[in-house]
Amino acid sequence: MRTAFDFSPLYRSSIGFDRVFDLLENASRTPSVDNWPPYDIARTGEDAYRITMAVAGFGQEELSIVHEPNMLVVSGERTTEDNGDYLHRGIAGRPFERRFELADHVKVTGAGLVNGLLTINLQRQIPEEMKPRKIEIGSSSGKAGSRIEAGTAKAVGKQIADKQAA
């Protein structure tokens, strides 16, 4: 059973969240996808993540990792065909393509293949101009001056906490 959600009331009270609503709409439209190859997603730090995929039977040259804007595409296709006389074939070797939606400013920092596990490391790297900054309010003496100071998110958060505690 599929339920359609109407996000139009949220459009009236939000600015700049169009991509989030598009992701939600696309997720509700997407039919159930193949669950192969299995994978794990782990948070390894405040802004660091790791994707681990079980790709038994695939060599390094048979796997492809492509980082597109806000999308990571991992695909694999076996180039060699083993035509043995199998009594049971349980190791899947079919081609696959797995897509991961990425948040803004998430970059791939490395990938490795060890013991049939493909590991992809990701890091969110927010540009300095996108980090929070403190904006001072000028006096009302006829001259509306404002000064912007660059600061880190922790410094701004501490200032807000100090004001709330006072």
Rank of each mutant, 00 (worst) to 15 (best):
Y39H: 08
S75Q: 07
T30Y: 11
N70M: 09
A111M: 11
I135D: 07
I51N: 01
E62N: 09
G142L: 05
E81F: 14
V156M: 12
F7K: 04
G45N: 13
G93A: 10
D18L: 02
A103L: 10
K134I: 13
F100L: 08
G142R: 10
V55Y: 06
I135G: 00
W36L: 11
R2E: 02
G90L: 11
S64P: 04
A165K: 08
Y86Q: 15
K131S: 12
A92S: 13
E129V: 10
D85I: 13
T30G: 03
E136R: 02
D85N: 15
R78V: 09
I41N: 02
K131Q: 15
L87W: 14
V55Q: 04
G84H: 13
N83E: 14
D104K: 10
I65P: 08
P31G: 10
F96Y: 04
T119V: 10
E149C: 01
V74C: 01
A161P: 05
K107C: 05
D34C: 13
N70Y: 05
G110W: 05
F58V: 01
M53W: 12
D6V: 00
G142V: 03
R12T: 01
M130L: 15
P95I: 02
R98G: 00
T152M: 05
R94Q: 14
I65D: 05
F100Q: 06
R43W: 01
S32P: 13
R43L: 03
F96A: 07
D18N: 09
